[in-house]
Deep mutational scan, measured.
Amino acid sequence: QIFVKTLTGKTITLEVEPSDTIENVKAKIQDKEGIPPDQQRLIFAGKQLEDGRTLSDYNIQKESTLHLVL
C-alpha cells in the first residue's frame, strides 16, 4: 500500500502493486475521493509523475507517500 497526502492534509491509503501505472493510481484516487484523474497531479520526491509510467519506474515502494496537487 502507499499513502497519498492531499493539500488539505488528508491522507488516503491505496492498495497498489509496483506494476501499477500512475494512471491506474489516479483512477483509484477517483474511486475513493471522486476527483477526476485529469485534475490530479501526483508528486513524489519533488517530481511530477507521468501517467504512462509505473510506480516501480519511480522507485515508489510500499509505505511511500505521494503528494496530490489539484
Rank of each mutant, 00 (worst) to 15 (best):
Q1I: 15
Q1E: 10
Q1R: 13
I2N: 01
I2K: 01
I2G: 01
I2W: 02
I2T: 01
I2Q: 01
F3D: 03
V4I: 14
V4L: 05
V4D: 01
V4R: 00
V4Q: 00
K5T: 15
T6N: 06
T6K: 04
T6A: 06
T6F: 15
L7N: 14
G9P: 02
G9I: 02
G9E: 04
K10T: 10
K10Q: 09
K10P: 06
K10E: 09
T11F: 10
T11Q: 07
T11I: 15
I12R: 02
T13D: 04
T13Q: 08
T13M: 11
T13H: 07
T13G: 05
T13S: 09
T13K: 08
L14T: 02
L14K: 00
L14M: 05
E15R: 06
V16T: 06
V16H: 05
E17Q: 11
E17G: 08
E17I: 10
P18N: 07
P18G: 10
P18M: 14
P18S: 10
S19Y: 12
S19Q: 09
S19T: 12
D20Q: 05
D20I: 05
T21E: 03
T21D: 03
T21S: 08
T21Y: 08
I22T: 04
I22S: 02
I22Y: 01
E23L: 12
E23G: 13
N24K: 11
N24F: 14
N24C: 14
N24T: 13
N24Q: 13
K26E: 01
K26D: 00
K26N: 01
A27F: 12
A27C: 12
I29H: 00
I29Y: 02
Q30T: 10
D31K: 12
D31S: 11
D31H: 14
D31Y: 10
K32Q: 11
E33C: 15
G34C: 07
G34I: 02
G34F: 04
I35V: 08
I35A: 04
P36I: 05
P36W: 06
P36Q: 07
P37L: 14
P37E: 07
P37A: 15
P37K: 14
D38M: 10
D38Q: 12
D38R: 11
D38N: 11
D38T: 10
Q39L: 10
Q39G: 06
Q40V: 09
Q40T: 05
Q40G: 03
R41K: 10
R41P: 01
L42Q: 00
L42W: 01
L42F: 03
L42K: 00
I43R: 06
I43T: 09
I43G: 03
I43F: 15
F44R: 03
F44T: 02
F44L: 05
A45Y: 09
A45N: 15
A45H: 13
G46Y: 05
G46W: 04
G46C: 09
K47S: 09
K47G: 07
Q48V: 15
Q48K: 08
Q48P: 10
L49G: 00
L49H: 00
E50M: 10
D51E: 09
D51N: 11
D51I: 06
G52Y: 10
G52F: 13
G52I: 07
R53S: 07
R53V: 07
R53Y: 14
T54L: 10
T54G: 03
T54W: 04
L55E: 00
L55Q: 00
L55P: 01
L55W: 03
L55S: 01
S56D: 08
S56N: 09
S56M: 14
S56R: 10
S56E: 13
D57K: 02
D57E: 10
Y58W: 02
N59P: 03
N59T: 05
N59R: 06
N59Y: 07
I60K: 01
I60D: 01
I60A: 02
Q61N: 10
Q61F: 09
K62E: 13
K62W: 14
K62G: 15
E63S: 10
E63R: 06
E63M: 10
S64D: 13
T65H: 15
L66P: 02
L66T: 02
H67M: 12
L68D: 00
L68G: 01
L68W: 02
L68S: 01
V69L: 12
V69H: 12
V69D: 07
L70D: 10
L70N: 09
L70Q: 09
L70S: 11
